Lab assay of single mutants.
Amino acid sequence: LYHVLGLDKNATSDDIKKSYRKLALKYHPDKNPDNPEAADKFKEINNAHAILTDATKRNIYD
């Protein structure tokens, strides 16, 4: 999941948040209406963010 956000395992919560915002804006379906690959990437980014920002889920993942 870290690679989805372009981060390593030592990433801080701020790093995760910044990377998520940058990538979410880039791949958001509203910005890429005719690109199904961007929509899939956006879903991956959201999933990675949801797990890595939840301390319990992140510990389980790590």
Rank of each mutant, 00 (worst) to 15 (best):
N32S: 07
H49G: 12
I45F: 01
K18S: 13
L25F: 12
A50H: 08
I60C: 14
P29R: 04
N59Y: 03
I16W: 00
D15I: 06
A38M: 10
S19D: 03
I45A: 09
D34R: 08
D34K: 13
P29F: 02
G6K: 01
D14W: 06
K17T: 12
N10E: 06
D34A: 10
A55H: 07
D30Y: 07
T53C: 10
I51M: 10
N10C: 07
A24T: 13
T53L: 12
N46S: 15
L7Y: 00
H3V: 02
E37N: 14
K31I: 12
F42M: 15
L52F: 07
L5N: 14
K9R: 11
H49E: 05
S19T: 11
N35K: 09
D15G: 04
I16N: 02
K41R: 11
A39I: 14
K31R: 15
D34E: 12
T12G: 03
T53Q: 09
E44N: 09
K26F: 05
L7Q: 06
A38G: 09
N10H: 03
N46G: 11
S19C: 11
D8E: 08
L25Q: 13
D34L: 01
Y27T: 10
D62R: 04
K26S: 09
D54R: 05
K57L: 05
Y2D: 09
D54M: 02
I16L: 07
A24Y: 15
L23G: 07
I60M: 14
R58H: 07
D8C: 03
D62Y: 00
L52T: 04
F42K: 09
Y20N: 07
Y20K: 07
H28Y: 05
T12S: 08
I51T: 12
T56G: 11
Y61V: 13
D40Q: 12
A48M: 00
T12Q: 02
Y20A: 14
S13W: 06
Y61R: 13
I16H: 01
P29M: 05
E37T: 13
L1I: 11
I45T: 09
K9N: 05
A55Y: 04
K17E: 14
L25V: 13
A24G: 05
N35W: 06
K43F: 15
I60A: 15
D15F: 01
R58Q: 10
A55G: 10
K31S: 03
L7A: 07
N46I: 09
I51V: 14
T12I: 05
P29E: 11
A24I: 14
L25I: 11
L23A: 04
K26R: 09
K31Q: 12
D34I: 02
N32G: 04
E44R: 04
A48S: 07
Y20T: 08
K22Y: 08
F42N: 08
R58C: 04
L1V: 06
T56N: 05
L1G: 03
K41W: 05
E37M: 08
T53D: 11
A55Q: 13
A38L: 08
L5Q: 14
L23F: 03
A11F: 00
I45N: 05
K41S: 08
E37H: 13
Y27Q: 08
K43W: 07
